[in-house]
Design a protein around this nucleic acid. Structure first.
Lengths: 177, 177
DNA sequence: CAGCCGATACATACTCGGCATACATACTGA
DNA sequence: TCAGTATGTATGCCGAGTATGTATCGGCTG
């Protein structure tokens, strides 16, 4: 999502060039997020266009161009950090649409779908647990905290699936016309 | 997110034109998702380009163009419904980046940030509860099920914030260089 | 009733940001 | 010299929003 502020945050403190922004960002996320390199550069260009970052000096070594935070960039970053994250609000996610369509279209195999979904979440739980363990082993407590959040989400999803699959489904409420 | 399959699913059974796809979609989501009209048409064009839908007859009334599902579209829809949703996997969300940056940049006001975030989630809980109640009153049990999922997520987020704010934070593990 | 007016049904075009692929080039170490 | 990595640019798709345009319909007013 918002590479934009990630980049701003990394630039706070020391100027970096594009490629290094990429590696710092990925390191910060503990390897859980491989950023596309092209995206970094377009993001930097847009940030420059909007006056939030600026080149710190002329191009160096092999075309390397250091960027630094402008005062406005500083301000924008602080503001973003200061306001709460609204998250992907509401029901704008694939799983919701899939559930709705499954009840009205594939009424037959809804239980199967729930079971598959459940298996998916279980797998995620396992992955996240391994990730958390690794983060702690590496002394990356900050990362472990993030993973903890993701774990809670996966557990919530699992619980949801359990609730759903213990309901008896009918076509109730699935009509819209 | 994936309007694409939402559109396919709505087209299953009866041909519709763009504007009506929009209203059906929004009705299906119980008014929690106002779709952009332009997006519907571009989505339909792309689906036609990819052979998943096709015009059902010539343009009618006032330029109205009915679309219907092609056999391939049918197949694509069934496949999508059959596979589990992978969800926004990993830690690619704003809140994670924000937390990381907050610990390493704004170490001072992390507790404040957590508190604000908690308030945001509480508000969401209230909103979702109202929404669920309304859905049940309207006999939209399918919708209520979705809202239940969103509620569980919000609760998980809240729990996460509680865990975090009862930790004592240091700069441990926040270094990457 | 004529005529106008605002709402809504219906569609297109344009723009921007996110994200991915592909490509180019220089350096560096085996 | 060959593989890999550091570093950057160009290009294109898709999601999503804004703006615009036309036809119809249900009024309200003179």
């Amino acid at each position: 999502m918002s590479l934009k502020y990630g980049v701003l945050g990394l630039l706070k403190g020391e100027p970096l060039h594009g490629y290094e922004v990429k590696s710092r960002f990925e390191a910060m996320l503990g390897g859980t997020w491989e950023v596309n390199i092209g995206q970094i550069y377009t993001t930097l260009q847009r940030l420059e266009r909007d006056g939030l970052v600026r080149p710190a000096g002329p191009r160096g070594d092999r075309g390397k161009l250091l960027y630094e935070l402008s005062p406005q960039g500083q301000k924008a970053l602080d503001q973003w950090l200061g306001e709460p994250d609204s998250g992907p609000q509401q029901l704008h996610e694939d799983i919701y649409v899939k559930l709705l369509l499954a009840t009205r279209v594939a009424n037959g195999d809804l239980q199967g779908m729930l079971a598959r979904q459940k298996r998916t979440y279980l797998q995620r739980l396992r992955d996240l647990n391994r990730l958390e363990e690794r983060a702690r082993r590496d002394g990356r407590l900050d990362l472990a905290r993030l993973v903890r959040g993701a774990l809670l989400h996966a557990e919530a999803d699992l619980k949801w699936m359990d609730e759903l699959s213990s309901e008896r489904f009918g076509a109730e409420g699935a009509r819209t016309e």
